[in-house]
């Protein structure tokens, strides 16, 4: 049986009817076609499915879409609407993107961190992205990219 769901994704309101066993990730990717958010492990370990739910980073593979009823979701598509976010530019410029699979989740977590703490130090950055795995192991560049945005936000 399908159940009504009202959800705002990247500023757009959707009134849908969905099956209860749909995760938020599957709703985004399959129903809304927003494939920027990646499905990695599907078990809440890798963080590639990270989106912001009411401003907080969450793993969308471990949340039922219905549990996000009435809430606001921001995905990588919403972050780069119109023009790229400074974080996206920094990731490109600093070479923080290798295979690219972890990148959307990494950037969403970094965005939430900078919203909360505009001037994070290296340790705070590493703690924030501890739940985002990069199998290319390009962590140094990723931390560098996030750090460069911290500085540029200040200016």
């Amino acid at each position: 049986m399908k159940i009504p769901l009202t959800i705002t994704v990247n500023g757009e309101r959707y009134d849908l009817e969905i099956k209860p066993n749909r995760t938020l990730l599957d709703l985004l990717r399959e129903d809304l076609g927003l494939t920027g958010t990646k499905k990695g492990c599907g078990l809440g370990e890798c963080g590639s499915c990270t989106v912001l739910l009411d401003g907080e980073p969450v793993k969308s593979c471990l949340i039922l879409a219905l549990q996000a009823n009435g809430k606001e979701v921001l995905t990588i598509e919403g972050l780069g609407k119109g023009k790229p976010d400074p974080l996206q530019i920094a990731f490109v410029e600093k070479g923080a993107v290798q295979c690219g699979f972890c990148t959307p989740g990494m950037i969403m977590t970094a965005k939430a961190l900078l919203n909360k703490n505009p001037q994070p130090n290296d340790l705070e950055i590493k703690e924030a992205i501890a739940g985002n795995l990069c199998r290319c192991t390009g962590y140094n560049k990723i931390v560098e990219a996030i750090k460069s945005c911290a500085a540029s936000t200040k200016r």
Binding site: G44, G47, T50, V58, K59, L62, E127
Partner: peptide, 9 residues
Amino acid sequence: IGSWQIRNV
């Protein structure tokens, strides 16, 4: 507990 994303949920 878990990661930041898990602690938020």
